[in-house]
Amino acid sequence: MRAFGTEFACPPGYLNTASVGIPPAPVAAAVAESVERWRTGASRPGDFDAYVARSRAGFARLLGVDPGRVAIGASVSQLVANVAAALPAGTRVLAAEGDFTSVTFPFAANGATVTEAPLEALPARVEGHDVVAVSVVQSADGRIVDLPALRAAAEAAGAAVLLDASQAAGWLPLEVAWADWVVAAGYKWLLSPRGSAWLVVRPDAGERTRAVAANWYAGEDPWSTVYGLPLRLAGDARAFDLSPVWLAQVGAAAALEYLGGLDLAAVAAHDVGLADSLRTELGLPPGGTAIVSLDGDPERAAAAGIVSSVRGGRVRVGFHLYNTADDVERVLHAFG
């Protein structure tokens, strides 16, 4: 099918982008070409530097920051660990109840005192905490944190903020450059291969971030830091780079450049429009999010040709670029 200016091989009823996004044809082709070069011995390590630079710049463009503020990695938890490991033991971290554990586990494992609060009450609970760590869009049900209220509360309380944009970046226009740290995985709404992730570090937050997996690629010039001491890391957020997953970065470079050329307001209108039309037909209030959480039998959904996930005992569906009103009708047939 063709959608938003490109081709997708997305089957009808695929509503599982919140787990795994479907790449546009050019993204899949770029990865396939790189696999072929690898298979035939044509690849050289230095060839992949350009893809890393492109993916870094693409993610920076989506979030409205300078590429020098962006570190690359393979997963959210890896990158959050750079933040959690730098905090003194006993640091008071506020998190949302039931948030994805890649956001909360690194803090709990590194000695922080983590307190959970209902998502809607998070801004009101910031006082008395040192850090707030929360997903912009909740993985389980698509609820969106009140970012303006959270920003105001954090600034008033002097608390730092880490945002996980994994379920938001790619469909929701974001203005989050104010946050101390923003992290996201690429394999969901960003339509990139698994093994690509990014961490945005606000300049003044760099000294409160630790390169827990310092490596050759985190050097100012990676090819001059492959051997020997002393420690010599880059002077910007690249100091927190993880050694890149090459094929994932090839796909991410193409995917982020494609997404960067779209009007994200139009993408959000499409995604949320489909999600809210489903909610309306089911007698539910609009949610304003691309993710819908439903009571129902997962086996019945599968029998109707719906690819979805089960989160919190409920069927989770998500609508992205390649979904249509036919997908809404398929869900209504199964649940209506």
Score class of each variant (00 low, 15 high):
residue 175 E to N: 14
residue 184 A to M: 04
residue 198 W to S: 13
residue 170 G to H: 03
residue 211 A to M: 01
residue 162 L to C: 12
residue 189 W to L: 15
residue 160 A to P: 01
residue 187 Y to C: 04
residue 182 V to C: 12
residue 174 L to S: 02
residue 176 V to S: 05
residue 189 W to V: 12
residue 166 S to T: 15
residue 196 S to A: 15
residue 205 A to K: 05
residue 168 A to C: 07
residue 196 S to G: 09
residue 191 L to Y: 04
residue 173 P to I: 09
residue 192 S to I: 10
residue 184 A to I: 07
residue 196 S to K: 01
residue 175 E to C: 06
residue 184 A to Y: 02
residue 182 V to I: 12
residue 178 W to H: 02
residue 200 V to A: 07
residue 211 A to K: 00
residue 195 G to D: 07
residue 189 W to N: 15
residue 182 V to E: 10
residue 204 D to M: 07
residue 188 K to Q: 11
residue 202 R to N: 05
residue 200 V to F: 02
residue 181 W to C: 02
residue 168 A to V: 07
residue 163 L to H: 10
residue 170 G to L: 05
residue 191 L to Q: 13
residue 171 W to V: 11
residue 192 S to D: 11
residue 161 V to Q: 09
residue 159 A to T: 02
residue 160 A to K: 14
residue 166 S to Y: 05
residue 184 A to E: 05
residue 207 E to A: 15
residue 190 L to D: 11
residue 204 D to R: 14
residue 202 R to W: 05
residue 174 L to E: 05
residue 168 A to M: 06
residue 171 W to P: 10
residue 205 A to V: 08
residue 212 V to L: 01
residue 198 W to A: 15
residue 208 R to A: 13
residue 180 D to A: 13
residue 178 W to M: 02
residue 195 G to L: 04
residue 187 Y to S: 11
residue 203 P to M: 06
residue 159 A to F: 02
residue 183 V to C: 01
residue 159 A to N: 02
residue 175 E to K: 12
residue 199 L to W: 10
residue 186 G to D: 11
residue 183 V to I: 01
residue 179 A to M: 09
residue 181 W to G: 05
residue 177 A to D: 11
residue 212 V to Y: 00
residue 164 D to P: 05
residue 169 A to C: 14
residue 209 T to A: 09
residue 210 R to M: 11
residue 207 E to Y: 04
residue 203 P to A: 07
residue 190 L to Y: 08
residue 188 K to N: 10
residue 175 E to R: 15
residue 209 T to L: 06
